[in-house]
Design a protein around this nucleic acid. Structure first.
Lengths: 69, 69
DNA sequence: ATGTGACTCCAAGTCCGTA
DNA sequence: ATACGGACTTGGAGTCACA
């Protein structure tokens, strides 16, 4: 499990688009800044579990979905 | 998704014992402080994904196992 | 609508001790 | 071996201007 930042970023992006959301909408729903949401999708951030759970909730999914390759 | 800290803590503790590890061994293998490892098991901490991945690796499991109730 | 660098601030994470 | 608290240092949380 080396490149998990990129994997999670891809999953967030994929699920977000599947929900028809923009980064900005996801950010608002997750209670985070839109630039921060973008940074996660690009694999540049190392978010806390608290943030990850909020994103999973905003995407109406479970956190383990964000780990799948 | 309300009480995830306690759930993750229980899972870490359960899997750690199943592997026959002490908190200290888990901490060393994960590259974190032992007091911090204990805090996670007790549901007091909000670790980063980086730390969660290292713990999952030390427990020889996948991160999604840590989310299951 | 999204990518990026450079921030500030406070929680993440460490290290010491006691029990 | 584990729990917990205090004092610390590091890095994530959160924001902004600009492209």
């Amino acid at each position: 499990m080396e490149d998990w930042k990129a994997i999670i970023g891809e999953n967030v992006k994929r699920l977000r688009k599947a929900r028809g959301l923009t980064q900005e909408q996801l950010a608002v729903d997750s209670g985070i800044d839109l630039t921060y949401a973008g940074g996660i999708e690009r694999g540049r951030r190392n978010p806390s579990l608290e943030v990850l759970m909020r994103i999973a909730a905003a995407l109406e999914t479970t956190p383990d979905e964000l780990f799948k390759r």
